[in-house]
Amino acid sequence: MQEDRATIAKPTLRERQRAAVRAEITAAAMELFLANGFDETTADQIAARAGVSRSSFFRHFPTKEDVVLGSFTSAGERVRDGLRARPADESPWEALSHAVALLLSSFVNDPERTLRAQAMLTGTPSLRARHLEKQLLWQDMLIPDVRARLGHTHSNGPDARARALVIAAFGCADAAIQEWVQADGDADIRGLYADALAAVHTPE
Rank of each mutant, 00 (worst) to 15 (best):
L102E: 04
G151K: 05
H152M: 00
R78I: 03
S106P: 03
A164H: 12
A169V: 00
V200I: 08
S91C: 09
D89A: 10
I167Q: 14
V67R: 01
I8C: 05
L165K: 06
R5M: 15
N36R: 13
A148E: 10
I143Q: 11
D174T: 14
A168K: 07
M120L: 15
P144V: 07
L34G: 00
T41N: 08
Q45M: 09
R14N: 12
A28D: 02
A196D: 06
K134G: 13
M120H: 04
M1C: 11
L103T: 04
W180S: 05
L32D: 08
L104I: 03
S155E: 10
H60S: 05
A95F: 05
F72R: 14
E133G: 11
A117W: 11
A85H: 04
D110S: 06
D188H: 07
N36T: 10
L115R: 10
E94N: 12
F38V: 04
W138L: 07
L121V: 05
K64A: 00
L34Y: 02
T41D: 02
R78V: 04
V108G: 04
T12C: 02
G185F: 02
F38K: 02
V108I: 11
M120K: 07
P111L: 02
E77W: 14
I177R: 10
A101S: 09
P158V: 02
D4K: 11
D89T: 10
P203C: 06
A196K: 03
V100Q: 09
S97P: 12
N156M: 08
D145I: 03
G151F: 08
L32G: 03
A164F: 11
Q118T: 10
L137N: 11
A47P: 02
A169H: 06
A199S: 12
A119E: 11
L32A: 06
I25Y: 05
D186G: 06
A101F: 00
L104R: 02
R86L: 10
G185M: 02
D4V: 14
T63H: 11
E90M: 07
C172E: 06
L121R: 07
P11H: 01
R128H: 14
G191C: 04
H98M: 04
M1Y: 15
E112T: 14
V146P: 01
A28Q: 05
Q178D: 12
E90P: 03
L137D: 13
V100T: 00
S106F: 15
V79I: 09
L150R: 04
S71G: 13
L137V: 13
